[in-house]
């Protein structure tokens, strides 16, 4: 795809200083408005002229959307908090290290200095065809260019694909699901607080969106309860290069052990499907069992049940099996028995 090194097409830039002003501007411009947080997902769309919003609403001047605050039951992170602030914050590092680990593995230092947590969980799919402006299902068309015998689909979905095979590329999303985070969303009708996993939607619900945001909606903050503070965490991300590259697959888990038994666990993966997947069947299967390589192995096998490879991404199935195994059973040298 040609890279255009010209100036982006013109738009109006609105820079509200409060959430109330932002809401009014969003209501006024409705579907013409594009919310900009750090812009690290937005600029590609605008520079490539694939999306042509008339109005950009820049949230960076809204103080109330920033910062990390201890709450009575955990911690609240403003949607506009930069990823590098999340990585470096003492409370996050000490008690919710899973999120710090995930955020630290996003993109590059400069992108983490600018990209926000809210933007990271709200970012769009990175499927080549979709990002290049091909009129695919996700773009409102009626074909998937990646799901063909010669389609470039090495990065694409192995689970829950429906027409569209793009994946959700966020590294922080599975960590937030494992930590049982709640997302606070301001809608034109009022405030909603939802479980992290319900923020994301797959193509069976809406093929053109990755999350529940609609025109006029604002993600305000992410709350992490203390339930999993200081639990045993595991985060692993596979990517081609150690910087910049999106996950080919990642896994995040939080586990509580009583002696060597798994007392409770939450585990999620991303880049396997169009939304980050909480592996509930795995959680249920391993709860109460010994935390051992054998349990990990069984968990890995269970995790990939129903997985369907495309032409170039079959590697993701053993990869996911192994990541889940390692998250639960620890990192082992030995290869798979079967």
């Amino acid at each position: 795809m040609a890279v255009i090194r010209d100036i982006m097409p013109a738009f109006q830039l609105l820079q509200p200083g409060t959430v109330a002003d932002a809401q009014k501007l969003l209501a006024q411009h409705d579907a013409d408005a594009w919310i900009m947080a750090g812009g690290m997902d937005s600029f590609d769309w605008l520079k490539d002229r694939i999306k042509r919003p008339k109005v950009l609403v820049d949230l960076s001047g809204i103080e109330e959307l920033r910062g990390i605050r201890a709450t009575a039951d955990g911690v609240e992170i403003g949607a506009m908090t930069r990823l590098s602030e999340v990585v470096g914050h003492p409370l996050i590092k000490e008690k919710y290290g899973l999120l710090a680990q995930a955020a630290e593995l996003v993109a590059s230092p400069q992108i983490r200095n600018q990209g926000t947590l809210g933007g990271n969980v709200s970012q769009d799919a990175r499927c080549w065809y979709y990002r290049a402006g091909w009129p695919c299902y996700r773009a409102g068309g009626n074909i998937c260019y990646a799901d063909t015998p010669v389609g470039r689909n090495r990065e694409h979905a192995i689970l829950h694909a429906e027409r569209c095979v793009a994946v959700n590329p966020s590294d922080t999303a599975p960590a937030l699901i494992a930590l049982d985070a709640k997302f606070v969303v301001q809608t034109p009708k009022g405030r909603q607080v939802m479980d992290a996993e319900h923020y994301f939607v797959g193509p069976e619900i809406d093929i053109t969106r990755m999350n529940i945001l609609r025109p006029g909606f604002l993600l305000m903050a992410i709350q992490i309860p203390s339930t999993w503070a200081g639990a045993q965490f595991y985060f692993e991300k596979m990517r081609d290069r150690n910087v910049w590259d999106f996950p080919l697959l990642n896994v995040a888990s939080a586990m509580k052990l009583s002696r060597s038994n798994i007392q409770d666990i939450r585990i999620a993966v991303n880049a396997a499907a169009a939304r980050p997947l909480r592996l509930k069947a795995v959680e249920d299967a391993v709860r109460g069992r010994e935390c051992s390589p054998a349990t990990g192995e069984a968990a890995g096998k269970l995790a990939v049940q129903g997985a369907v490879p495309l032409q170039f991404n079959a590697y993701k199935i053993p990869l996911m099996r192994n990541l889940v195994k390692r998250a639960i059973g620890g990192v082992q040298e030995a290869a798979w028995a079967s």
Binding site: R5, F43, D44, A107, Q110, N113
Partner: peptide, 17 residues
């Protein structure tokens, strides 16, 4: 021009962007 190389890095309030 796509946040993928770093050639354009400058400091904004002392932080690389």
């Amino acid at each position: 021009d796509r946040a993928e190389c770093g050639a354009c890095t400058v400091l904004i309030d002392d932080v690389p962007h």
